[in-house]
Design a protein around this nucleic acid. Structure first.
Lengths: 200, 200
DNA sequence: CGAGTGATTGACTTAGATCAATGACCGTGG
DNA sequence: CCACGGTCATTGATCTAAGTCAATCACTCG
């Protein structure tokens, strides 16, 4: 999800870049695990194929994301990884990663910290999805992503992307934002949204 | 989320049990971090309070779940933890945990493995929530949770709980299941659901 | 300057939430 | 032992918010 600043120089050195064409398999279910991947460019999906031959998507990942973390601790893959577009990956080989976990407590901590933060962020997003109403969902997003002052949220990327991240269509998102602004609940400026204090 | 079989005896020994009354704060935003919690009994919620004084829920956790993993790597809390019911917790103190991470590569690996699995499971659930249609969401659930044969899913807990986990009302869930059964897509038995092969 | 994309708004439709009612089952306390 | 309260499972009726389709404007980039 984020740039891997948690990696030690040793591991960076051991990484290999690999490219895949759209549609190509990166690994298949049952195959021996190779390591942790980081996406340099492109998009991949992890899928499991169900009885009817349909793909059940486990994860979609894009540039900057990592995937197959859990494969470090398992001997074979339990899903397929497929390049959705032409893709460049960086592979951090399992052996090197495990050796480094073994050798360097510093690295272990950094790695665990990164995973713990991801767990927290994912749980929060999942909790957000439990909210039915678009308006409440957006409020949740704003409350959770507000800066230290608890007021302003900086929008990273396009509004459309944010809408997608919230599990809303961009139309619903635009509309609700417009409505919230009209009602004075928020204020919009280029790249930021500011929560207004409730008028009570 | 699961019984902490990844804990070393050293840490188990250092754990402390604490009880809270419903509504009591377990920790508050800004306070110094104490460690990782496991819920023995009861329910808690992690919340951030927004400008309008409303709670934005970051996580709801129940018996068997752990929370505040990330606090191990941070000096102060960034949210409040509140007991939703009378609750018994086990606290694994931060100092002991970090020392153990430092000392025992075995433990570091086990801890990282546990977190990596959680990350995977959470990503999968999040991906599931991107599916609009109840029917497709259920299909996804079945495909992902099928046993080795790829056919049968064992229902843990009540159907109602499963519905909740899928982000559906229990009514919608029952209805869709009934419909899928009527159409011969699945077969239901006590405690299990079996996927039928697609008729193509 | 056109093509492509984001931002925005309108109109329409629908799937799922909500409210409601019923039967089955389970534990329990008199 | 059985009546009663509670919860789960199930189905019906209704409503509405959000998805879908569609059109327009602004902006950027080669």
């Amino acid at each position: 999800m984020s740039a891997p600043n948690w990696l030690s120089p040793t591991i960076r050195a051991a990484a290999k870049e690999i490219t895949f064409k759209a549609g190509q398999y990166i690994f298949r279910s049952g195959a021996r695990t190779t390591g942790l991947y980081e996406i340099i460019q492109g998009k991949i999906r992890l899928v499991r194929v169900d009885r009817s031959g349909r793909e059940a998507i486990l994860q979609v990942a894009g540039a900057g994301d990592t995937f197959a973390e859990a494969s470090l601790f398992s001997s074979s893959y339990h899903c397929d990884a497929i390049a959705s577009t032409d893709t460049t990956l960086r592979l951090y080989p399992k052996g090197v990663m495990l050796a480094e976990l073994e050798r360097s407590p510093k690295f272990s901590q950094a790695f665990a910290a990164m995973l713990a933060h991801q767990v927290m962020a994912l749980r929060t997003r999942l909790e957000q999805r439990n909210i039915q109403s678009a308006r409440e969902r957006i409020r949740h997003y704003l409350a959770v992503n507000a800066d230290a002052s608890g007021r302003t949220v900086t929008i990273s990327g396009t509004l459309k992307d944010v809408a997608g991240g919230l599990g809303l269509t961009h139309e619903a998102f635009y509309r609700t934002l417009a409505d919230m602004e009209a009602k004075g609940e928020i204020e919009r400026r280029k790249g930021t949204i500011t929560l207004k204090k409730s008028p009570i």
